[in-house]
């Protein structure tokens, strides 16, 4: 055991983590899935969505930003926490305009997959039916804000990886929306379909054009196994 190793307990299971890891990273490495939405492994954590909230020594904290330290006792997969997560996902559904059966992200969408995994059968909250704009001005990439969950992945990717800073947020609260750094839409930015920003959207919002429904039902990402299964699979090896 090296100096960098710290011991933490997640849902009663003792695991070894590396100092500097977040709780979420440590859990991933141990094959324990903590639901998350705004987090992306290739990007710095955002801490926006709160889906990854766990209890650390009894107090709620977002696991994608919380660093591990010796002796942390973490609750993750409990009814109480999962109910809160389900509520967040449900709010995201009713805040936007999501028509999964005809959405090209269906089956590959993390929001939809989280809904399934967390047992959200049908939204119990009223739909807000907000009007949100579609930005089709770019020839290869589009933004369908009806499906945006404001996770900020594209913002971070464009800034940190692509070094273009093409995306940002404007307004606050329920009026918050994804903005692009241009007057007349995405078409005026330097964004390209090959950018990291165009690859990381968890939903069908920021999408590369003309891909459409290329993957048949049955072979899409979450058709066979629920979201998180790719992390839990690792457990076998541990």
């Amino acid at each position: 055991m090296s100096q960098d190793t710290v011991n933490i307990i997640i849902d009663g299971v003792e695991i070894q983590a590396t100092a500097g890891q977040t709780i979420l990273e440590a859990a991933d490495a141990a094959g324990m899935y903590i639901p998350r939405l705004c987090h992306h492994p290739d990007l710095p954590p955002g801490g926006h969505c709160r889906v990854c909230t766990v209890k650390v020594n009894g107090r709620p904290a977002s696991s994608c930003t919380f660093p591990v330290s010796e002796g942390l006792v973490i609750e993750n997969d409990t009814d109480e926490i999962n109910a809160q997560r389900r509520r967040i996902i449900e709010m995201l559904f009713v805040e936007g305009n999501h028509y999964c059966p005809s959405c090209e992200a269906g089956g590959n969408c993390e929001l939809q997959a989280l809904g399934y995994r967390l047992g959200m059968l049908a939204p119990t909250l009223p739909y807000l039916r907000v009007k949100r704009e579609l930005d089709a001005t770019h020839k290869d990439v589009y933004i369908d804000r009806d499906r945006c969950v404001l996770c900020g992945r594209c913002v971070r990717a464009s800034s940190v990886v692509d070094k273009k800073d093409a995306f940002g947020f404007e307004n606050r609260g329920i009026k918050k929306r994804l903005s692009v750094d241009a007057v007349h839409g995405l078409g005026e930015t330097a964004v390209s379909a090959a950018d990291k920003a165009a690859q990381v959207c968890p939903t069908g919002c920021l999408t590369v054009k003309r891909v459409g429904y290329a993957t048949p039902v049955g072979r899409r990402k979450y058709d066979k196994t629920p979201i998180g299964a790719e992390i839990e699979k690792k457990t076998a090896k541990v």
């Binding site: 028509y99 059966p101 005809s102 090209e104 579609l134 089709a136 589009y142 054009k209 003309r210 459409g212 429904y213």
Partner: peptide
């Protein structure tokens, strides 16, 4: 109107 052409075969089923 405004939707993308590749969406039509799926959307129209609604």
């Amino acid at each position: 109107q405004g939707r993308f052409y590749w969406e039509a075969p799926t959307i129209v089923q609604r």
